[in-house]
C-alpha cells in the first residue's frame, strides 16, 4: 500500500525557491489501478518521481508497505526501487546497446540473481508480453509498441509490488496505445499489481479504475470508475 501524507516538494532555482507540490495526500491500495492526469507543469511527474523513490519530498511522509521511505539514503532507495517498483517510461528507455533479453535481465542482475536463472525468468516474461521471438534484437530493430512491451517486461520481471508508468502510451499511435493498455490491464489483473499511470489522455485515464487530477501541485479531483467526469 502506498500512502502519501502532506507531501511538498520545493526546488531551488537560481536562488529562488519554487514549490511544485503543495501538500499532497494520497492513498493507493494494493492491486489498485490509478490514473493521474493533469496538464504539463502541474507537478504530476514530480509526484511520480517521489512515489518512485527517484526524488525526495521536501516535507511530508511517504509510507510504502507501512515503512516511511521519504528520507532513506540512496542505496536503500535503490534497493527498494529494484525490488518493489517497476518503471515504464514514455520513451521506453531501453539501453540501446543491449538486446531485448539483456534489457529485461538488467533489474535481476542488479539484484544479484545468477545469470542462467535471470535469463530463464526474463525469457518467460518476454513470452508473457509476446516478445520472445524478438529476444535477440536490439531496441533499434523494434517498433515503438514492441519496445514498450519489452520495457513492460523489464518492469515486471523482478515481480515488483508497484508499477509506475509515466505516459506509457505517449509515444505510440492510438492502435498500438490500446494494445499496450490492454496488456497493462491484463497483467495488472493476473499479477495483482498496483499500477500508477500518468497520462494526459482522457481515453487512457478512463480505463483506470480510479483517476485523480493534479493541477498546480494540488489534487483537484478524484473520480472513481462509474462516475462520469465533468468535461
Amino acid at each position: 500500500m502506498i500512502e502519501l501524507k502532506g507531501i511538498t516538494r520545493t526546488y531551488m532555482i537560481g536562488g529562488t525557491s519554487q514549490t511544485i507540490l503543495h501538500g499532497i495526500d494520497l492513498k493507493v491500495e494494493d492491486g489498485e489501478f490509478l490514473g493521474i492526469i493533469g496538464p504539463s507543469g502541474s507537478g504530476k511527474s514530480t509526484l511520480m518521481n517521489i512515489i518512485g523513490l527517484l526524488d525526495r519530498p521536501t516535507t511530508g511522509q511517504y509510507f510504502l508497505q507501512d515503512e516511511d521511505v521519504a528520507q532513506l539514503d540512496d542505496d536503500r532507495r535503490s534497493i527498494i526501487r529494484n525490488q518493489f517498483i517497476g518503471f515504464v517510461f514514455q520513451m521506453f528507455f531501453l539501453l540501446p546497446r543491449l538486446t531485448a533479453l539483456e534489457n529485461v535481465m538488467l533489474p535481476l542482475s542488479y539484484r544479484g540473481v545468477p545469470e542462467a536463472k535471470a535469463k530463464e525468468m526474463s525469457m518467460q516474461m518476454l513470452e508473457r508480453v509476446e516478445m520472445a521471438y524478438r529476444a535477440d534484437h536490439k531496441p533499434s530493430a523494434l517498433s515503438g509498441g514492441q519496445q514498450q512491451r519489452v520495457a513492460i517486461a523489464r518492469a515486471l520481471v523482478g515481480d515488483p509490488k508497484v508499477i509506475l508508468a509515466d505516459e506509457p502510451t505517449g509515444a505510440l499511435d492510438s492502435k498500438t496505445s490500446q494494445d499496450v493498455m490492454n496488456l497493462f490491464m491484463k497483467l495488472q489483473q493476473e499479477e495483482k499489481k498496483t499500477v500508477v499511470l500518468i497520462t494526459h489522455d482522457m481515453k487512457i485515464a478512463d480505463q483506470c479504475k480510479r483517476h485523480i487530477e493534479v493541477q498546480d501541485g494540488r489534487l483537484v479531483q478524484e473520480t472513481s470508475v462509474g462516475d462520469q467526469p465533468n468535461r
Binding site: S78, I79, R81, L95, P107, Y110, G158
Partner: peptide, 14 residues
C-alpha cells in the same frame, strides 16, 4: 543510460 540503470535499481556504487 545512467539514469535508467539507477531507476531500475543500480546503486551509486554499481
Amino acid at each position: 543510460e545512467i539514469g535508467i540503470r539507477m531507476a531500475i535499481g543500480a546503486r551509486r556504487n554499481d
